[in-house]
């Protein structure tokens, strides 16, 4: 009897030991994988940070690895001058904030309409939203340019048409009307989110005598903050990184380019002012850091909120 009991204890302990070894192996494997993948993600960033602070001498010094011997800010100074960084930063932030705000406004309204109301052709209209998502940007860019260069809303505005190229108006108009860059995706996200919100909330508001729009602004909108954050951030980031639309809509009229374009043109610009040499890559690295720097700072502060938000948006139903 006693020996039987002892056996059971032994068995139990063995099982426990087995399990803890297993979980140890799993966490070590996980650690290796996560470290490896993090390394792959961070590597380009770290290498850019490392080289951006190097002097020419460091670049060809074989003993310099990762940490520059002669720490310098010269690369950043040159990048700032040749990219018109300060003006460009101001322009890019204003534009990205504008676009994000208007895209957010339009996709919230439209998404709510699709989530909560029934109307004729609803399915077809929603199919149109998805349709805007799969149209390659090439298909619309040049006509966009021509329509905004001679903007008369197909004859509704008298005269030869306004020239909106080089202003924010093309961005504002297409964002406000929900056909901007990836706007369909935001409409989809908002629709999914509102569909997941309990119907009773609105019913209660209606019973209390609130109107349709009052209910939307005072009940639904405050409840939708997680989804609003996600849409705003994505819209901001994508506009910040965008080259296609900015190049076409802002044209070559303005003296200052948005950051993404300034960065693209930086090699040429540097070639013109400074003779071509491997040294230029140091300045370009510094320029790249200057462009993504603000995004990384925003992300560092927002990322926690951002991750939680996506989890609560109910994109996944």
């Amino acid at each position: 009897m006693l020996s039987h009991f002892a056996d059971r204890i032994k068995d139990f302990n063995f099982d426990l030991l087995n399990r803890s070894i297993k979980s140890w192996i799993i966490s070590i494997l996980r650690l290796i994988l996560i470290t490896g993948i993090s390394y792959l993600i961070l590597f380009p960033l770290l290498s850019k940070i490392s080289t951006a602070f190097m002097t020419r001498a460091d670049l060809f010094d074989r003993t310099v690895f990762w940490i520059p011997k002669n720490f310098t800010l010269e690369n950043f100074e040159l990048a700032i001058i040749h990219m018109d960084y300060v003006e460009s930063l101001l322009l890019t932030s204003t534009l990205a904030l504008c676009v994000a705000f208007f895209q957010l406004a339009s996709s919230t309204l439209v998404g709510y309409g699709f989530a909560r109301y029934d109307f004729p052709f609803k399915k077809i209209f929603f199919a149109l939203v998805l349709f805007t998502l799969i149209v390659p940007p090439n298909m619309v860019l040049v006509p966009y340019y021509m329509n905004f260069r001679f903007f008369n809303l197909y004859g509704l505005i008298p005269g030869d048409g306004l020239n909106l190229i080089g202003t924010y108006w093309p961005f504002i108009l297409i964002s406000l009307t929900g056909v901007g860059f990836r706007n369909g995706l935001f409409i989809f996200v908002m629709r999914q989110f509102f569909r997941g919100m309990p119907q009773n909330l609105e019913d209660a508001a209606y019973v209390d005598g609130a109107g349709y729009f009052q209910t939307f602004f005072r009940i639904m909108l405050p409840g939708a903050v997680p989804a609003l954050v996600v849409v705003f951030l994505f819209s901001f980031v994508w506009q910040w990184n965008d080259v296609f639309f900015s190049r076409v809509f802002l044209g070559t009229v303005g003296e200052v380019d948005v950051l993404s374009i300034a960065l693209r043109d930086l090699p040429e610009e540097l070639d013109y002012w400074i003779e071509h040499s491997p040294y230029l890559s140091l300045i370009i690295n510094a320029g790249t850091l200057l462009v993504i720097g603000p995004l990384v700072v925003v992300y560092a502060f927002m990322q926690r909120y951002f991750v939680e938000s996506v989890e609560r948006t109910g994109i996944v139903g």
Partner: peptide, 18 residues
């Protein structure tokens, strides 16, 4: 009314370029 911004944008700005 809620989806009218999109309808306006689609027919005024998006469809014509296509």
């Amino acid at each position: 009314i809620f989806i009218s911004p999109f309808l306006f944008g689609f027919f005024m700005f998006f469809l014509a370029p296509i």
